[in-house]
Design a binder for these strands. Structure first.
Lengths: 205, 205
DNA sequence: TCGGTGCGTTGAGCGAGGTCAACGCACCTT
DNA sequence: AAGGTGCGTTGACCTCGCTCAACGCACCGA
């Protein structure tokens, strides 16, 4: 990975700013070094589906196709490392184990996408929100089994478009989970989970 | 690909029979040579999300993880080529371009999964069914721009679990599309599309 | 020929989540 | 302090798709 540093340029983006748009020619690959990013697809009439949230360390633009299959925007202020796909290809010929790593990353993303399909197709609003909170906990903060607390950098609107719900339903579901004691909401963008096991139990059935 | 033939064993499975189940140790990789296969995940109470349908030529079990992330069952009678993942790994060291091909396959599947997330999260029942029919047309039969006709090997129940709907809604939507003249239904498992352009227009907005 | 079974279709009624609207609050700018 | 804006919450009502139920039809074995 140190080899990458020679090829890399660093860019900074502001909240809401676009990194690239679906259909743009895929010239660059990025890695998030600071902040959070959302990936999404749009329908013509403006309906939006967020396909993933990225945290520091995550890659974007790895699709290996002519054009990007989704758009990417910063959620918070963010720093990205950027390098040309052509140079990545050159690197891959020298270091085949990097391709192996990319393959693993693609497969992890695929498994996450399939889990999300299960969520969108077959879970109730409450189950979707509970699943989302647990995956955010695991992906971001640590996963101590006892009490846990972490930040949600994205807005209710982002969460709604990720879970296939409306803003109002997300808000009502947060309130319901809080009233049941399954979560705490110290602030609107911070979640505490008194007991992960019981919350996990409400992610299905 | 001819090298693979040395490692391959051929297996035959009957409609409804299981190829492997989510959580099984991932010892084999498969390729469909005849028939159709469904991939799916289950919730504890039996709710099912089908994550994909496979046609001849498609791979399954490529996840490159300890265990399979989904279950696989035959839809029709099917023939599969099977080979051990360990032997695949050996092959990959000799032929790095195969890994490159696997990476492309994983990325194609990822793009399809993201498109499906958009479908499940943000499209109406009619849009989902129209999208599904068009993707089946493209994936299976040819894509001549004029009149087109093709088979749907899967049941209404499979389609429902793929689109996040119920059997009844799928059935009603087929009927509605037929009454609007957007599709024809020569038999329950055969679709004709008089004009792809107008059907495509009803996949969104 | 006659039930039996599986699958698809259709109808009637219902409910989870969407829509529309009001409001609260934090954070601006002037 | 006053007004404006963006975001989140809450309430009232509605609708799309789900549930429950009946029925048709093809296929099958006795």
């Amino acid at each position: 990975m140190e080899v990458l540093d020679r090829l890399v340029s660093h860019i900074q983006i502001r909240p809401g700013q676009t990194v690239f748009e679906e259909g743009d020619e895929a010239k660059f690959v990025y890695n998030v070094s600071r902040g959070h990013v959302r990936l999404f697809k749009l329908l013509q009439d403006g309906r939006r589906q967020i396909t993933g949230f990225l945290a520091p360390g995550d890659f974007l633009g790895l699709a290996a196709r002519q054009t990007y299959a989704y758009s990417a925007e910063a959620i918070t202020e963010a720093d990205l490392c950027r390098f040309k796909v052509g140079e990545l290809e050159t690197l891959l010929e020298e270091m085949p184990q990097v391709r192996e790593r990319l393959y693993e990353i693609a497969n992890d993303e695929l498994a996450a996408a399939q889990e999300q399909m299960l969520c969108l197709g077959r879970k109730t609003a409450k189950e979707r929100v509970a699943s989302f909170l647990i995956s955010q906990l695991r992906h971001g903060a640590g996963c101590g089994d006892g009490d846990a607390e972490f930040d949600l950098p994205m807005s209710r609107s982002d969460i709604a478009d990720y879970l296939g719900l409306t803003i109002e339903t997300v808000s009502r579901t947060f309130t319901a989970l809080r009233e049941e004691g399954l979560i705490g909401l110290p602030t609107t963008h911070r979640i505490s989970i008194p007991d992960i096991t019981t919350l996990e139990a409400s992610t299905e059935a």
